[in-house]
Amino acid sequence: MELSLKEMEELALIARLYLTEEEKKILPQQISSILDMVHSLETVDTEDVEPTIYPITGSGVLREDEILPSLAVKDALANGPDIVDGYFRVPRIIEEEYES
């Protein structure tokens, strides 16, 4: 798969990653070569093989419905870069794709 600059910029937008000019220069080729590693897998017959999602076979634990202490509000907010009145503040929320 040869990734074009445009395709990579689309991926970067989906992943919300700003890329520097230099990164834009070198990344498409590098990403293509990593994605191309999949070709080496094509020779493996995986017909009727279940995909491995978890390395060991486990069964999920369930928790009883009990209330546990939450963080103190000041601890919850302590790492927030922009705190106003006990809330985390963000600039205007937009859902449309970003135009740079």
């Binding site: 990734l3 990579m8 991926l11 970067a12 937008l13 989906i14 992943a15 919300r16 990653l17 700003y18 890329l19 520097t20 990164e23 070198i26 990344l27 590098q30 990403i31 990593i34 994605l35 963000v90 600039p91 205007r92 929320i93 937009i94 449309e96 794709e97 970003y98 740079s100």
Partner: peptide, 27 residues
């Protein structure tokens, strides 16, 4: 001025290896 731009600029600070893996994973 908006969240998308905030996300991109903040996450843009990640190093190139992280970006490489994220882009591959996103693809």
């Amino acid at each position: 001025k908006d969240t998308t731009s905030m996300f991109m600029k903040t996450r843009g600070q990640l190093g190139i290896e992280a970006k490489r893996r994220i882009l591959v994973g996103t693809a």
